[in-house]
């Protein structure tokens, strides 16, 4: 499959790129909400780009794995990154602010959506943010947040905690999200 030039701020006036800017697509979330988005923004998602190329364009693109709230967030991200004249620095600042206010649950929803829609930049940004939040957290916080049941015996766990006691120094309280 031929990959088209995905650079939205190409200097040359490419008629195909112009068309993409004016053409709009409709994305439909799992809970039935519909969102309009320019094709040039939508195809920053490689999954959507593939669907468009496979000729689903014109109609509505159903995204049964993404709920409306998450899709709205993803569209905000795509629009910013497709914006004409937005500098790399501006986008970097936008990315920073975009994820900074999100609660852990929202970050999880967005990372799943970005993974499903294959939006590399967003995926990277959200993964990094999740990792940053985990750094100083306790094992209990991680289990709760990731829905993990410990499958160690209490003796095994005690033994590991003793063996690596130094790594437990400086753990934050779990209050934050």
């Amino acid at each position: 499959m031929a990959r088209k030039n995905r650079n939205p701020v190409g200097k040359n006036v490419d008629p195909e790129a112009q068309k993409k800017k004016t053409r709009t697509l409709t994305l439909k979330s799992s809970d039935g909400q519909e969102f309009s988005i320019s094709e040039s923004a939508a195809v920053l998602s490689i999954a959507i780009e593939n669907m468009v190329e496979d000729d689903c364009a014109g109609g509505v693109i159903p995204l049964p794995l993404v709920d409306g709230g998450t899709l709205a967030r993803v569209i905000t991200y795509l629009n910013k990154h497709a914006e004409d004249g937005a500098s790399d620095e501006e986008k970097r600042k936008f990315d920073e602010e975009f994820v900074s206010g999100m609660e852990m649950g929202v970050l999880f929803d967005v990372v799943l959506a970005a993974n499903y829609l294959d939006i590399r930049g967003l995926l990277r940004e959200v993964r990094r943010r999740i990792a940053d939040r985990m750094k100083n957290k306790s094992v209990e916080w991680v289990r709760k947040t990731f829905h993990i049941e410990s499958d160690f015996t209490p003796e095994e766990e005690e033994q590991m905690k003793k063996e690596f006691a130094w790594a437990w120094e400086g753990v934050d309280s779990d209050v934050d999200d």
Binding site: R127, M134, K135, N136, V139, V142, F152, M160, F164, A167
Partner: peptide
């Protein structure tokens, strides 16, 4: 991929999360 981004000491601690 998320765990790969964590510092060494954090990963030593998170061995305790589960098998």
């Amino acid at each position: 991929i998320i765990l790969l981004m964590l510092p060494t000491e954090t990963l030593v601690k998170f061995q305790c999360v589960c098998r």
